[in-house]
Nucleic acid binder design. Structure first.
Lengths: 356, 356
DNA sequence: CTGAAAGCGCTTACAG
DNA sequence: CTGAAAGCGCTTACAG
């Protein structure tokens, strides 16, 4: 190791200094304004010779505009904050990934903040992002927090993915992007009914997000509607932070009494995975005798869980939608809710080629 | 929708304006410098009464320091860039997640950039991050690019997770964080040998990353070393961008001749997942007759792939290590490589409680 | 076509 | 204890 006082230490202790507009201007013998105009490709910026000279200097010194200086001047940062509930969840990772790509294409840089569904972290990040003067917020979290309420009432430009805005004012454009969760629950019920199930288990998270509650409720509602007696519906709401753990616990509850026989609806892929693990360990039957359907249908599931039938939410398209919604906000218009369709992805039926 | 010229439009078209240091100073009747000192908790910043008055104004106006102004002044942004090869890969998502948490604890904000393993995107991001004056770079990509070479030679502060620095100078501290990949391959070989396998398949990606090549090579090397004849080793390098597709293709090649009988080493979890999907569809036997071991052992695998035995890389600890390495760099010292140990995670043996 | 100057929000010596 | 002033890197009217 270099000693603390060695010259080497000094040299390496900060990032290599890069040239500024002023440096370029000085060595090219023009004004800062001129260089700025050239860099930004403004209309009648400079004579051909001046431009050539300046460009040469820029090239030679490897100049790149400092975004911080620009951001301070313009009052906008080209930064968008994305707050995710839990990046470890593949669904969240997918949303983050596609949003990042769409924002990049639109010329923005995404900052990803993992709130771990903790209100304190959520507020910490919200404030840190405001301090960075981000131009918009994408929320994929379901937690209430004072900071979020404050931001909503202050009119910050936010889009809500998957989970609706918990502080949305009545009759306001919610800027919500997602599926009709209640309807998805109903469709899951129909799927099992059409396969002649007579007993039903609905697995969801206790005190879950509004979205996941809506799925479970919609499902139970539909079952009753189609004449299933209450006694034939097991509405299991298992505790746990991770949906994996929820699914495991729910499956345990399900298998607890006598061997289960009937259809199973999991409010999310992750819950289905937890169920699956329990099934592997303790022999809960997940074959055609007990058809299982989940809601999410993430791409990874098509690989890792060929046994899984699910209502596939088109997360791969969320990035584009999110950017469109942000652009609406940036135009000063309220962003309407955006309800996307889902589709049935049958077990094992998804073609490999589409996944590569 | 509000008409384009409605007053509403104007009102919403930019973020709500927030108070500046100057505003606070003016309404509190003190100088900007005084407010700054109070906000930053500097030693003898102000008299008790002044401070009280200023704090009151800050509270009333909801003032938060603008990080951009501060960054410009101090020449540091408290931002760290993380470049990931592919966020859709759960291993990458895990690394991103833990790094984000560790950086936050250290007072930094992480910007996540998904390069999709494309050199052009990698360079685009590298330059965008430099423009943001980030204080460090975390690379979890394996792509060579002109920009990366430029950054390395310029001495930017970077750490390399999982994939070594492709432009590291001889005998230089590489700032690499990861496992001994060749040794992991060797250990995987030993695992199968100890289970009395006599035939072996080694599944990896054609033209893969140095890390994954090292795993496959180490494995083959060890097999030969322990006397396995070349004809009993099938070294399958399948093409494909995603490791899932690679695993699928490799399994197809493996099953192509006669029914496979022997041990299987997958260079990564994802390759094992692809193999698994092929096995489910086409009946490749993955039970004890054909023991399979992969390298990675991501937490998600413990849930979704209870059938999988793997050498578990402690990705959950990567965040802490990455921050330590960055802090070494920030002190002006070179960051040594950091080789972490891995451990065997046997199929189905991982306790559920540890995963919640 | 080109430049001098103001100002974005902040920190930090330097005076008093 | 407190303030006036310079300056971080940039853009943008405003002159010429």
């Amino acid at each position: 190791m270099a000693s603390p006082s060695s010259p080497r230490r000094r040299a390496a202790s900060r990032a290599p200094k890069s040239a500024s507009l002023a440096t370029i201007a000085a060595t090219a013998g023009v004004s800062i304004a001129t260089v700025s105009r050239i860099v930004n490709g403004l209309p009648r910026h400079a004579s051909a010779e001046t431009e050539a000279r300046v460009r040469q200097v820029i090239e030679a010194l490897g100049y790149r505009p400092n975004q911080i200086g620009r951001a301070l001047q313009q009052g906008k940062s080209r930064l968008v904050a994305m707050l995710t509930a839990e990046l470890a969840n593949p669904v969240m990772a997918t949303i983050a990934s596609v949003t990042e790509a769409a924002l990049r294409d639109a010329g923005y840089v995404m900052i990803l903040c993992d709130t771990h569904d903790r209100p304190d972290l959520q507020d910490e990040y919200l404030h840190a992002m405001r301090a960075l003067v981000v131009e918009g917020y994408v929320l994929a979290t379901n937690v209430r927090s004072p900071g979020l309420e404050e931001f909503v009432t202050r009119g910050e430009r936010m889009v809500f993915a998957c989970r609706p805005n918990p502080y949305a004012a009545e009759g306001t454009a919610g800027a919500f992007l997602g599926i009709d969760n209640a309807q998805a629950g109903r469709d899951a019920a129909d799927y099992l009914l059409d396969r002649d199930c007579t007993r039903f288990a609905v697995l969801s998270q206790a005190n879950g997000s509004p979205a996941s509650i809506a799925r479970a409720l919609g499902c139970c509602e539909r079952l009753r509607e189609r004449g299933v007696p209450k006694g034939r519906i097991r509405d299991i709401r298992a505790p746990g932070h991770s949906h994996l753990a929820v699914g495991y616990a729910a499956a345990r509850a399900l298998a607890g009494r006598r061997p289960w026989r009937g259809g199973i609806v999991c409010a999310s892929d992750q819950i289905a995975f937890g169920t699956y693990r329990f099934a592997c360990e303790h022999g809960l039957d997940l074959t055609t005798a007990n058809p299982l359907i989940s809601i999410d249908g993430a791409d990874l599931s098509a690989w890792l869980a060929p046994w899984l039938t699910s209502l596939h939410v088109p997360y791969e398209e969320f990035g584009t939608h999110i950017v469109e919604m942000l652009q609406t906000l940036w135009k000063g218009q309220p962003a309407a809710d955006h309800i996307v369709p889902y589709s049935l992805r049958a077990a094992g039926a998804f073609p490999v080629d589409d996944l590569c």
